[in-house]
Design a protein around this nucleic acid. Sequence first.
DNA 1: CAAATTCTTGACTAGTTGGTCAGCTATGCT
DNA 2: AGCATAGCTGACCAACTAGTCAAGAATTTG
Lengths: 207, 207
Amino acid sequence: MQVNTAKKTRIRQENLSIILGKAEQIFAEFGFKGATMQAIADAADLPKANLHYYFPTKLALYRQVIERIFTIWLEAADSFDTSATPQEALTRYIRKKMEISRAHPYGSKVWANEVIQGAPIIQDYLQTTLNEWTDTRIAVINRWIEQGLIDPIDPRHLLYMIWATTQHYADFSHQIATLNDNRPLDDAQWQRATRNVTDVILKGIGA
Amino acid sequence: MQVNTAKKTRIRQENLSIILGKAEQIFAEFGFKGATMQAIADAADLPKANLHYYFPTKLALYRQVIERIFTIWLEAADSFDTSATPQEALTRYIRKKMEISRAHPYGSKVWANEVIQGAPIIQDYLQTTLNEWTDTRIAVINRWIEQGLIDPIDPRHLLYMIWATTQHYADFSHQIATLNDNRPLDDAQWQRATRNVTDVILKGIGA
DNA sequence: CAAATTCTTGACTAGTTGGTCAGCTATGCT
DNA sequence: AGCATAGCTGACCAACTAGTCAAGAATTTG
């Protein structure tokens, strides 16, 4: 049975992967409504009807794209180690978020687009998983404050600042490139950006 | 002639204003492609054909919306007083940007959407006006660094951080509200947010 | 090899949407 | 009042697009 399934799904796995990747790109570039199944099909080099064989509707495809992004987000969330010092936890978390912004800019853009438009699809994720995760980190930050390890800042605004700044490098990459002689940031520039962001935030909260 | 024009355009002025306002809202909520002329017409309580009387095409309407937003952005830009101290200039600029995020969330969202999608419409604004403005402020920040008024940080990343953080409160207002018991931030919370952002950034750059 | 299952695809449909237009009404001026 | 200009609008169309489907090709299994 397992062997059977594995063999069955070889082609399937490949096509799913290609379609999801291209869909992410097209959704990021044109928004949900602006992205057409035909455009995604062309990008994936498949006939449109084939897309509907794997994903019954455009919305279903979009949901899968969003879920993949959310998984990556959770991966970064874990790097906010609640048992570490403020310096360690935040440095690692910021670095991870910057790495994700660089590795998955399209995913970040789709997510941003979705939230900007009122999160019609991912509302439940925000209300449950994100809300819970945020509460635990707020508790940790408050403990740091009580212990005098950082300044008494509102933990929520610290988190918003980290999210905003790190995701900005993905979501606004076009603007950043335009102000960088129309070139995307190179390795050294990404490193410098990460260091700058980390330094300012850590120093800014007195860590 | 002038009197004539003024009288002529009374109705026109009113309708233009209503349409642009509603269009901003609909574009923010559904993106360019997702926003329909019919939806904008309904929101403005006008027949669709009437929209096309004032704006020949959807793209023309969108351009006007974007231009209005850009004007507001320029207004904020001026508050970055190049002759003031770092503390004064940045405090005023951040406060202004936070005020705009609160007063014009839809405009900010349209702008964000546009940039995320590669700025197909506003590319020229980025290349010219924004680029020039950025260069002058970079020069100012570098002077501050030379004079030892702030830490030697990359001026670009400081600007990106300010843009990202302040605009986050507009663009991600839905997410912020969700994490705030499903309520938008109230007056006190906006003040607190502004103070937090200002404090962390100023302290973070050693100002 | 033959049967069964999975995958592929061109052609089609129903619904949506930007934009048009001809004729109408309201407004303002002399 | 009468004329000219500006503003309004229902009805319509062409283009586009998500989704369907039936028939065929490829792959796997026994």
